[in-house]
Amino acid sequence: MSAPLEVTGLGRSFGHTWALRHCSLRIEPGSITALVGPNGAGKSTLLQLAVGLLTPTEGTATIFGQPPATSAAALAQVGYLAQDHPLYRGLTVGDLLRMGRGMNPTWDHDFALGHLAELGIPLSRKAGGLSGGQQAQVALTLTLAKRPALLILDEPVASLDPLARRDFMATVLADAADRGTTVVLSSHVISELERVSDHLVVLGSGQVQVDGAIDDLLDRHRILVGPGYASPPTGLRHVLSEHTTERQTTLIVELDGPVQDPRWTTHPLSLEDLVLAYLRDPDAGTRTFATQATGSLS
């Protein structure tokens, strides 16, 4: 089966600036992938290339083996939600549902009505008169009622308050639980992603820096604390950062196996620290982590 999303050597330039370059990724079916990176790292560009809103300058993107947005059938498989949750502000919620129904052969009207009723969003209200959280939910409802096999969310909760964030993500995740939807969501806030996603892609300055299963990533990376000015122990695959004083050396490393050297103690690393370490690591190329070890923490 073709991957829900696969990009190969993907690049996009605006004028003389590359927003994204040499990007290769494969999203596994049923996974929930967090795409993280600082602002301007190319996250939006990558997602818009994936749904065909942008055309690549180089390389290819395919969705279930097909180029995106070239046919109605290809479009029907993907749900996309832009960061600002765009809606026709002058239309009522009911009008918007009718639009979704008219433009999507796979539309699930009962789901849309049921979900909005659950949230208490009246169909007669104009979209422009809804709160930010409600607008996000209406836009998400339009996206989900299409019944997409792949859901692409660009910074979906960035503009929402904590309660609206929670409700929004609960809707997305319940859909993933119900239908096995593959989800790719971007964010520059890493802290909330750990409980939501199972795969992580880190983009930094237009390039993929980390790509792997989160459990696997956390399992392979450690903070090592050892004596001052000590050289790193053997058996490391990669040293991401090194901070040393007279008394103590602190390393963030990717392990190749257990650290045997008794002078070093190992500590687990939070996802946020791991991401930051990669974004700061000047030598970081693309590091892809196989997903075979899912569950290796157990």
């Binding site: 049923g30 929930i32 993500m169 609960a170 995740l173 993933a176 639980a177 409980r195 939501v196 996603s197």
Partner: peptide, 14 residues
Amino acid sequence: VREVVASLAINPNT
């Protein structure tokens, strides 16, 4: 699974 996912907003795979 769906109830846990919806109430805690966590990944279904978890």
